[in-house]
Design a protein around this nucleic acid. Structure first.
Length: 423
DNA sequence: TCTGGGGTCCTAGGACCC
DNA sequence: TCTGGGGTCCTAGGACCC
């Protein structure tokens, strides 16, 4: 048995813990650059604010209804996420952290401690709320896909009070819920698959469940076949307690304004490549390739459009920021074209491998000081804060950096931004 | 004026091997 | 006049997830 524990409107809930006056009000959290709404409180959803709606289109209705818009505060959300996870680990030794706001728990063997799975679900919900302040929903079922579906019901149907154990329902109750759910509510059925299923006359979850997995495989491939088995109660997707090693690391960002000069792109790409290299070392990995890309703003149809990318191979596998930045800048200088308004750039690290089994190069003299220099860099930044020490090519003013106009404090992760309690 | 960021997996097609 | 069968590896693009 699996439980899927998913926070309600997670980013908004994090903000509300430190600004209780936002309870009951419509609140949205914006993406980087205050671009789009990426989290919405129930009140904001009720006002019809769609997921991903651009903020500039929402401003007027936001003013009219008193919607509070906040810039994203990932330092806060990451820290709150870790707190929620640590509470979940007290309930089950087998936890898969699936995303910043949801985790799967394997429940087998735990049920002796609680009268029913539902009671266990309610205990999880109450303790997470009490200890972290974050409201969560719990879905319980014999497969991960069904646990996701149960979680969906737990949140949407008030009769469940935030906890839905699919097995506790009668066959008829389950069937009537399945009929009420669209195929697109199934985990793994996205827009394209849902459209085609509808064309085939398979519109709700019950109809999907009754369709033969073999037929679905012919129509869609193995992924949808696997989903079909999961919906039938046959577990095909295992719990991943230990996150598998990354295959790719990306660091990219939209600019605060249109960038035209190579000089600014060099600063940005250098910053992103440095950030990607940090992630690489944190995961104990090395890479042998760097992809760099730039693009103009596709929404501005009146502007000349250009987007391009380039793969640069490294002479030997490395996690050294200096080499990775140099490779990224080498590529950037080849794809840069004068005269365009650039909106975004990014760096991907490719062909990742473990730093423990580094392949030496026949032709390249390895610099033995590299590991030491990088470990000094990381420990200084770890101790004194990110970007205390950085490569000069990243620039200092970084005028192109993204803009956050509605920023909230890093309440839980910086001494000088701690919330103050007053009498 | 203003539209996010970071991932995985699968498949088809091309290049290559014997 | 006529041109096989069985594979692997790589890449780009699409679909999905949060």
């Amino acid at each position: 048995m699996y439980a899927l524990v998913d926070a309600n409107n997670f980013y908004v809930s994090c903000e509300r813990i430190f600004q209780p006056k936002l309870e009951g009000r419509p609140v949205i959290v914006l993406s980087n650059n205050d671009g789009c709404a990426i989290a919405r409180s129930n009140e904001a959803k009720a006002l019809g604010i769609p997921m991903g709606a651009p903020w500039f289109k929402l401003k007027s209705i936001a003013e009219k209804h008193g919607i509070v818009a906040l810039s994203s505060n990932y330092a806060l959300y990451g820290d709150m996420s870790n707190r929620v996870t640590s509470v979940l680990r007290l309930f089950s030794p087998r936890v898969e952290v699936y995303s910043i706001d949801e985790s799967f728990l394997q429940l087998d063997g735990l049920i002796g401690l609680w009268p029913t799975y539902g009671d266990l679900g309610h205990a999880i919900r109450e303790r997470v709320k009490m200890w972290t302040g974050i409201p969560v929903g719990v879905g319980i079922a014999p497969t991960k896909t069904l646990a996701k579906l149960a979680n969906h019901l737990a949140k949407k149907r008030p009769e469940f009070h935030g906890v839905c154990d699919l097995n506790a329902l009668t066959r008829e109750e389950r069937r009537s819920y399945y009929i009420s759910l669209d195929v697109s509510d199934i985990w793994g059925v996205g827009r394209r698959t849902a459209e085609k299923l509808h064309r085939l006359g398979i519109t709700n979850v019950d109809a999907f469940r009754l369709t033969s997995p073999k037929y679905l495989r012919e129509q869609f491939g193995v992924v949808v076949e696997r989903t079909a088995c999961e919906v039938r109660g046959i577990s095909c997707i295992e719990l991943e307690e230990v996150a598998p090693a990354k295959q790719q690391i990306v660091s990219s960002r939209s600019f605060g304004y249109m960038v035209t000069s190579l000089h600014e792109l060099v600063e940005a790409v250098s910053t992103y490549a440095g950030r990607a290299a940090e992630k690489l070392r944190k995961g104990g990995q090395v890479c042998t390739g760097v992809h760099v890309f730039v693009e103009t703003n596709p929404f501005r149809e009146q502007d000349a459009q250009y987007s391009n990318g380039m793969n640069v191979s490294l002479a030997e596998s490395t996690d050294d920021s200096r080499r990775i930045v140099a490779a990224a800048l080498y590529g950037l200088k080849r794809i840069y074209r004068d005269g365009y308004l650039y909106k975004k750039a990014g760096v991907m690290l490719l062909n990742l491998g473990s730093a423990d089994v580094r392949q030496a190069s026949l032709l390249f003299q390895h610099d033995d000081r590299s590991e030491k220099v990088m470990s000094v860099l990381d420990s200084i930044n770890g101790k004194f804060g990110r970007n205390t020490m950085f490569l000069g090519s990243s620039g200092i003013e970084q005028s192109w950096a993204a803009v956050f106009e509605h920023k909230t404090p890093k309440y839980t992760s910086r001494w000088d931004e701690l919330p103050v309690a007053s009498a």
